[in-house]
Simulated scan of single mutants.
Amino acid sequence: MPGTHAGRSERSSRHAGRVDRPSPWPWLVPVAALVAGALFASSVRASDGEELRTGYTRLPDLIREQTRVNADRAEKVDTLRAQVEDATAALAPGDLTTQRLERQAAEIATAAGRTEVRGPALRVTLTDAPLPGGEVPEGGDPDDYVIHQQDIEAVVNALWAGGAEAMMVQDQRIISTSAVRCVGNTLILQGRVYSPPYTVTAIGNLETMRSRLQQDRAVDLIRQYAIAFGLGYDLEDAGTQTLPAYAGSITPTVAEVDTS
């Protein structure tokens, strides 16, 4: 094909020899410097002159500080409550109505968790699965390797159903209206934050509570996950324990009237 060879010859003659192309660096360097300067200025404005990650790095410290504040306030509430009770008793020592109400309050104080309880106890300890290197196995679901809110609730509910007279989660006495909440792998209970392992201690009839734990389907699921994924589930006889009185408020903030 003569035409084709002629064309290739022309292009070859035009492009023969070394072609000197101008280097792009003289104009790329100033542009890169301008872009970097703009990004730096944007970062300074966004952080208002402070470290961008400050909020994230300080979060654990803020949680610990708030936990200390809550503990201090709970102690003050206990002191004030005791002062109110002493003042009430001193104001009307001979009033029959007051005495009757005080007797009624004393009768229901145990059920309301307002008294210290001592007796034989069971303790259930729940903990996350140990992970080599802190990494979830390839293809695994991270949720399978940690204790969740529903796991703690399952143990608590089973123990109540088994006739527990008093119960404590971690170092706090709880009652039937206590709320157990988990955020990530931490437990939030009555204003305090805890990390695993989680302990649930209950006073009552040991055989009845143990039997209920054995029969409960939700608790059995925890035991299955303990076998499959290495979660910690440990049930032990805790001997004779003394559980402190419940320190929180028992005044309901939400109520629903049965209209049936």
Rank of each mutant, 00 (worst) to 15 (best):
T97D: 08
T98F: 14
E102H: 15
E102M: 13
A105F: 03
A105Q: 09
A106R: 04
E107N: 08
A111G: 02
A111C: 00
A112K: 00
G113C: 04
R114L: 01
E116N: 12
V117Y: 07
R118A: 15
G119M: 08
P120W: 03
A121Y: 01
L122W: 11
V124D: 14
T125R: 10
T125D: 06
L126R: 10
L126H: 11
T127I: 10
A129C: 13
A129I: 15
L131Q: 08
P132F: 01
G133Y: 10
V136A: 11
E138C: 02
G139N: 02
G140Y: 01
G140L: 06
D141N: 15
D144C: 06
D144T: 06
V146G: 00
V146K: 02
V146I: 07
Q149T: 12
Q149E: 12
Q150F: 04
Q150Y: 06
I152L: 14
A154K: 01
A154Q: 02
A154H: 03
V156I: 10
A158R: 07
A158F: 07
W160L: 09
G162E: 01
E165D: 03
E165M: 01
E165V: 00
A166W: 00
A166T: 00
A166F: 01
A166C: 05
A166N: 01
V169H: 07
Q170F: 04
D171L: 11
Q172C: 07
Q172A: 14
R173C: 02
I174L: 13
I175D: 02
I175W: 00
T177R: 13
C182L: 14
C182E: 12
V183M: 07
G184V: 11
N185V: 09
T186H: 09
L187E: 13
L187F: 10
L189Y: 11
Q190S: 14
G191I: 10
G191Y: 12
G191S: 13
R192S: 15
V193M: 13
S195K: 11
P196S: 02
P197I: 15
P197W: 14
P197E: 15
P197A: 15
P197L: 15
Y198M: 10
